[in-house]
Nucleic acid binder design. Structure first.
Lengths: 234, 234
DNA sequence: CAAACTCAAAAGTACTACTTATTCAAGATG
DNA sequence: CATCTTGAATAAGTAGTACTTTTGAGTTTG
């Protein structure tokens, strides 16, 4: 508990650049700053070290590393960045990642999904279409996330599957900012149905192409969002 | 030092399935097993916990989590898997990841690379072609890695850039297994030149397409490697 | 038989003592 | 005067002990 508090506090400061790279923290100083014991301070530093956010050198202290050294795939770091002032930029980065992965994931899902998964994907597509027609945005988002989540795990690649949280975050972030069109775009819905159909048919090329169309569309949306929404912070 | 030894030992055991999911380890037991102090044992467990390899519950112990919960992007976990019996499968997974990312990275590189980067990419392409003609496989690999590394960092997406180690590993693994053709394929070399040219011209579509051709080719190679090389273990 | 209560086991936290590596500087040596 | 060596100070690393908190499991009681 104590551990997590301190980790979040210190990690967020580093992730948001409040502690610039090169900054040296002495472990004793950390204990005072957070009113934590040596044990807690040390374990927090160990964790930050494994995330490559810091490096420790004897007789020197804990050194904040360059962002390029960080493990940007660590869920904690992603969280800290999304909750900080750089949220729009972080969302853009994550969206680019997803736009790269998902078409490929769709391809593998078409090749490897179980019959049951293919069925569920189709069902989710149908529900997606229905909630879109009903202009029920929040339910739409829910099914949208479920759709992408299922697709990623059906790809049978653990590294793809792990990105479902990222995708959920990107999709939510888009809706949350109120910058999404008042109702889901019919083309996007049609493309989701196309992906589901292609996966059901076991047609990797078609699945990949349809998914690519989806993410390209999303990429353009988010790019616009960052362009004029970058200053709003939270 | 001590810390890292124990972490590697225990982490590798978990990563390779020697300690099945659900296994419960008591921290005192760990101290004995590795002859480590309480401090070291605790910090190791903390780190494994942040990697989502384990979860700790009071009055129970340290529980090994399901592979699906692991943070598969952690460089340490990747290392443990590559060094273990599941190396071929791990290489296949990583190669799929790279095959998803690199075409997209090429696109962004074409849009965002600095003039200097565009120049260096072209130069690397040339050197690649030369070493290919000279049948100098090890130098070829070196330039190949440098080429992909530069492209990824030129994409200006930290999450893409971070995968350069993964790409290097995949490329090396392919050559290392001696399953690569005795000389680099002319088509592959031509495609690298095409990527460099497209990036130089700032043509994202062309860059993406050429890179996609490269990774698709690699994907097929590795799939074959896994099919008949899966049993050779280390 | 179910619900609450008690007890003990194991992780979490705190603190102290000791070890080791590294930087910085003073002094010796060429 | 420069360079190399040596040594002391410092801060992180490691070890070990003591105490706290949570919670699973067994037991008692209505």
């Amino acid at each position: 508990m104590r551990h997590e508090q301190v980790l979040d506090a210190l990690g967020a400061q580093i992730a948001n650049g409040a502690l610039a790279p090169g900054t040296v923290l002495r472990s004793e100083e950390l204990q005072e700053r957070f009113g934590a014991s040596r044990t807690v301070a040390r374990e927090v530093v160990r964790v930050l070290e494994t995330m490559q956010l810091t490096s420790s050198k004897r007789r020197v202290g804990v050194i904040v590393r360059e962002p390029s050294a960080w493990n940007h795939y660590d869920p904690r770091l992603i969280r800290w960045q999304l909750d900080g002032p750089a949220r729009p930029a972080a969302l853009a980065t994550l969206n680019e990642l997803r736009s790269a992965i998902e078409p490929c994931a769709a391809r593998f899902a078409a090749l490897r999904a179980t019959p049951e998964e293919r069925g569920r994907l189709g069902a989710l597509g149908e529900r997606l279409a229905r909630t879109a027609r009903a202009r029920d945005l929040s339910t739409f988002l829910e099914f949208d996330i479920a759709f992408h989540d299922l697709l990623l795990s059906a790809s049978r690649n653990p590294m793809f599957a792990q990105l479902s949280e990222v995708v959920a975050e990107v999709l939510t972030g888009r809706t949350g900012h109120g910058l999404m069109p008042p109702e889901p775009q019919p083309e996007a819905v049609a493309l989701h149905l196309e992906v589901a159909a292609a996966v059901a048919d076991g047609d990797p090329d078609r699945a990949e192409r349809a998914m690519r169309d989806i993410v390209v569309q999303a990429r353009e949306e988010i790019a616009a969002l960052v362009a004029d929404g970058g200053a709003e912070g939270e």
